[in-house]
Simulated scan of single mutants.
Amino acid sequence: MRDRPYPARPNERLAMAQGENAALRRVAFLIGQLELGGTEKQLCLLARELRLRGVEVHVLVLSRGGPYEQTLREVGIEVHHLGFGREPSGLSTLNRNLMAFVRLVGLLRDLRPDVLHAFLHEGYMIGAVAARFAGFPLVVVAGRRGLRHFERRRGWLLALERVVTRVTDHVVANAVAVAEDARTVEGVPARKLSVIYNGLPASAFEGAEPERVDTSLPVVVCVANLRSVKGLRFLVDAAGMLSRRGRPCTVVLVGEGVERGRLEAQASALGVDVRFVGARNETAGFLARADVVVLPSLSEGLSNAVMEAMAAGRPVVATSVGGTPELLEDRGVLVPASDPVALAEGIARLLDDPDLAASLGAAARAWAGKNLDMDVMVDEHVRLYHRLLETRRAG
C-alpha cells in the first residue's frame, strides 16, 4: 500500500496521550438520509463501533430515514429527524428549512457533542454553519466521499463551499483521490485534510451461499444504485458487444434507482440478458455467484461495492475513476470510464482466463484484509477526533 499524503494521525504515541486528556464522550453524525448507499453504510459501521467503545452517538438526519435507521436503533443509537424539505424551491420550503435549521441548532445545544461529523455535501454545508450558531466549542469534521470536479459546481456554490470549509476544523476523505480533489478544486489546505479508507466488517470476508441465478451463461454482477453516474448504460452496451462476439453473459444488477426503466428498454433493444433484482441489504450471495464483478462508474469516491467484491475474493473490472485505482492497482482490471469497448474487453479477458481471474481475486482479498479492516478505520477516526479535541481545548 502506498503512503497516504494526508495521514490520519501525525504521531501515534502523541495521539494516544492526547486521547487520555481529551476524553471523547459524545459524537453526533449528520447526514441527509439513511437509504441504502455506501456512505450510509460506513456511517452505520462507524457509529456502531463507537457505541460499542462506550461513546454516546447520535445520528441527525436532515430529511428522511431509511433502512439503516433500524440498524442504528437496534444498537442503542438515537436517530433525530430534523425535517428539512426536498421539494422544489418555494416560500413554504424555505420556511420549513429555516425551522429545521433552528431545530438543528437547538438540538446541538441540547446534546452538546464533542464532535459533529457531517457527511456528504448537504450535510457539511448545513452542519458547519449550524455548529457555529450553536455557540459552544465543538469540533466540526466534514466527510468528503466523492469528487467535486465531476459535479461541475457553479462558481458561487464553490465559493460558498470554501467559506464553509474555513469554519470546519477538518476534512476527512475516504480516498487519496478525493483528498487531492478537495485540495485542488476547493482549495482545502493539506493540513486540514486526512485520508481514512472505508472499513469492512469481518462478515465481508466470510463465505456466503451463492444466490440462485437461473442461467447457463457466465454471471456478471454489478452492485450499484441505478443512477446515471454509475455508468450502467455502458455495461449494458458492453454486454451487447460480448453477445455479438459469441460471448454472451447474464448481467445481474443489484440496486434500484431512476435509471431502471431506461436500462430495461436498452437491454430489451439489444437482446441481452439483464436481471434487475432491486435493492438488497445483503449482497454477499450475489457476489459469491459472480464470475466477474463490474463497476462502470463515471465518478467514485471509494466504492463499497468494489471493496466487498475484493473481500469476497471475486475478480473485478472497474473504471479507473476516483479512489478505485487505489483499491484495484495490480489487483483487478481497470478500464477508462464511458468506454463500453474497453469494458467488454476487460470482462472477456477474465472470463477467458480463469487462472488470471482467480489470482486477481485472491490478491484483492489479501490486500483488503490488510488495508480495509473496520477496526483500523474506527481507530483512525478516534485518534483524529482526540487530536482535534485537544487542539480545540488548548486554543
Rank of each mutant, 00 (worst) to 15 (best):
E78N: 08
L295I: 00
E74I: 03
E282H: 12
R26T: 12
T215G: 04
L298T: 06
L200T: 04
L120M: 15
L350C: 05
M310K: 03
L147R: 11
G285M: 03
G285Y: 12
A267C: 09
A363C: 09
G135H: 08
V378N: 11
S194Y: 02
R103P: 09
L24H: 13
L343T: 13
H58M: 01
L343R: 14
A357D: 02
V293C: 07
L82M: 11
R26I: 01
D355K: 14
A22L: 13
V167Q: 12
V252I: 05
G65P: 01
V274D: 05
L94G: 08
M125A: 08
Y124I: 00
M99G: 13
L24Y: 14
G261D: 12
E161R: 10
R365G: 02
G231C: 03
L138R: 13
D181N: 11
T250P: 01
A177F: 05
L50M: 14
V171M: 03
G85E: 07
G346H: 02
L242E: 03
R48I: 08
S228G: 09
L34I: 15
S338A: 15
V316D: 00
E256Y: 09
D237T: 11
E161N: 09
D353F: 05
V171A: 02
R247Y: 00
Y197R: 14
R349N: 07
L263C: 02
T39M: 10
A368E: 02
A265M: 12
G127K: 04
M125K: 08
V317Y: 00
R314H: 00
E49K: 15
E326D: 10
G83D: 02
T215F: 02
A267G: 08
P210N: 01
L327C: 07
F84T: 02
T319F: 02
Y197T: 04
R153I: 07
T324N: 14
K230H: 04
V102Y: 15
N281E: 15
G66R: 08
D181M: 05
R86F: 10
G32N: 06
R25L: 09
V178Y: 02
A309G: 15
N371P: 04
R289T: 07
P296S: 06
D330V: 06
G332D: 06
V115P: 08
V167F: 10
G313Q: 10
G127E: 08
L356I: 08
G66I: 00
A173W: 01
G361C: 07
F119L: 06
L388C: 12
A364P: 04
F136Y: 15
G85C: 11
L372H: 13
V141L: 14
S359W: 01
P315R: 14
V293N: 00
H149T: 15
P354T: 10
P325K: 01
H386K: 14
V163F: 12
V252G: 05
S303M: 00
N281A: 11
A267V: 05
E326F: 03
D339F: 06
L343W: 05
D114P: 13
V213M: 05
T391L: 14
V55H: 13
L120I: 12
H170Q: 04
P354H: 09
P189W: 07
A47W: 13
G361H: 09
T39F: 00
P113D: 11
R13S: 10
V61F: 00
H381Q: 09
A366L: 10
A368F: 01
L62V: 04
G323T: 04
P354L: 09
G285L: 05
V220A: 03
